[in-house]
């Protein structure tokens, strides 16, 4: 899908969420759904398989998000899947996060960790990143067991990597 179309879908989701007054929740839920789709090939294949009827794919989404996401999020995702754009759901979610952050003058920091950060740690990390970048930072914590331990933060093209996985990789490369 072209960037223009992805932006259009993200703008539509942003407008709907803002109109419904659920922007923060929708943005966060879509971001998390994006991460789930990134890490789950089976789910991604099921949602993008042209042989599976659209109604069935929408049903999969409803079953997946029922009770775990707002109705607005569910409606937006169902709309995207129904339009046959499930393959771009991750990009649309990322674009929505960027759109939401830039709307409030923030930069998005994707923080991957082996275990979920506590609220106190998120607050402290946000402050540290803000002080380091001189930007308002919206931290998005992604639990990713592959990092093993520590954190890796990506803000735009900048990466601050302090993971055990990277240390081990460096050790492997040093051999």
């Amino acid at each position: 899908m072209s960037d223009t179309r992805i932006t259009a879908y993200a703008d539509a989701a942003f407008a709907i969420a803002q109109a419904e007054g659920d922007l923060a929740e929708v943005e966060d839920e879509l971001f998390r759904l994006g991460r789930v789709l990134e890490s789950n090939d089976e789910l991604r294949s099921a949602l993008t398989d042209q042989h599976v009827p659209v109604s069935r794919r929408q049903q999969i989404i409803e079953d997946l998000l029922a009770g775990k996401a707002t109705q607005t999020t569910l409606a937006i995702v169902s709309m995207i899947v129904g339009a046959g754009r499930a393959a771009d759901l991750v990009k649309i979610a990322n674009e929505l996060v960027q759109r939401t952050a830039s709307n409030s003058g923030q930069a998005v920091a994707e923080v991957r960790s082996a275990v979920a950060l506590t609220d106190a740690q998120l607050t402290e990390l946000t402050a540290a990143l803000k002080a380091r970048t001189n930007m308002d930072i919206l931290v998005k914590n992604i639990v990713d067991p592959s990092v093993m331990g520590g954190l890796v933060t990506q803000i735009g093209d900048s990466v601050l990597d302090g993971t055990v996985r990277t240390r081990l990789n460096q050790l492997r490369d040093a051999f």
Binding site: V115, Q121, A128, L129, R132, G149, G150, L151, L160, G162
Partner: peptide, 20 residues
């Protein structure tokens, strides 16, 4: 990498980012 170690690594990272 038990829970305590994970927390230490996270805190160490945050401290390092803050100190730079």
């Amino acid at each position: 990498l038990d829970e305590a170690t994970q927390q230490r690594l996270i805190q160490s990272y945050i401290d390092q980012v803050g100190s730079q």
